[in-house]
């Protein structure tokens, strides 16, 4: 018998006859979490993610690029990793270089340029799939066009979020979008810049991931 068969045999010998009803997760959320307007969700999202040291800027659907430029200028960043296969990445790549910001693309598999990613990529720009109000959380689903390391390795990560995509809870997000029917290679919840309190319970930002997280939140047209 293999280890697998031995473990399963031991467990099966003791398995209760019935596991009972499925836990009523939906019922708990229905009684403990209410509906909210987009504006309220945006406000709560912003409150919590700012508590976690992220910067949030309200932007308009047409005007986010200007804010992106301002943020980069203020941080004296002249190089931004973008995903040109996405509409926002393509726009950044076409409009930022004339303003003096280089926009290299994530086009090759990481193996061919890992050292550059780790050592010479000061910032990156991606979109969020959505967000969660009650915890101030961004939902990221990296794609072949916008790969995983973009939101992890560069010290500054700038994220474009559509405020109409903010859910009240994590549960609501996964239910509304039917996540159980198929998850991507990697899906992420990100709730601020990287941090640690491992030294004497003192909070320090920029442990291993981004030191700064900037959210450009597209709200109503201004």
């Amino acid at each position: 018998m293999s280890a697998r068969d031995r473990i399963l045999a031991k467990l099966k010998a003791a398995t209760p006859a019935s596991a009972g009803e499925l836990p009523d997760v939906a019922g708990w959320y229905a009684t403990h979490r209410g509906e909210e307007s987009t504006a309220d969700k945006a406000r709560r999202f912003r409150h919590f993610i700012e508590l976690a040291h992220a910067e949030v800027y309200a932007v308009s659907r047409g005007g986010w690029l200007q804010k992106l430029y301002e943020v980069l200028s203020a941080k004296q960043i002249d190089k931004l990793l973008v995903a040109p296969g996405t509409p926002h990445g393509a726009r950044a790549q076409s409009e930022l270089p004339p303003l003096g910001i280089a926009c290299p693309s994530y086009e090759q598999p990481i193996e061919s340029w890992k050292a550059v990613m780790f050592n010479d990529t000061p910032a990156s720009f991606t979109a969020a799939r959505g967000a969660i109000a009650e915890t101030g959380t961004l939902i990221l689903w990296p794609t072949p066009e916008e790969p995983r390391l973009m939101s992890l390795v560069p010290p500054v990560h700038i994220v474009l979020l559509d405020a109409t995509r903010i859910y009240n809870t994590f549960f609501e997000a996964m239910q509304a979008e039917g996540w159980k029917n198929g998850l991507p290679t990697n899906s992420l919840l990100v709730s601020g810049p990287s941090k640690t309190a491992d030294i004497q319970q003192t909070l320090a930002y920029g442990a291993h991931g981004p030191k700064e997280l900037v959210v450009l939140m597209i709200g109503d047209e201004q």
Partner: peptide
């Protein structure tokens, strides 16, 4: 209220 990262790996 949540950790900074919640990482779901499916493949």
């Amino acid at each position: 209220n949540i950790s900074t990262y919640f990482n779901m790996i499916s493949s």
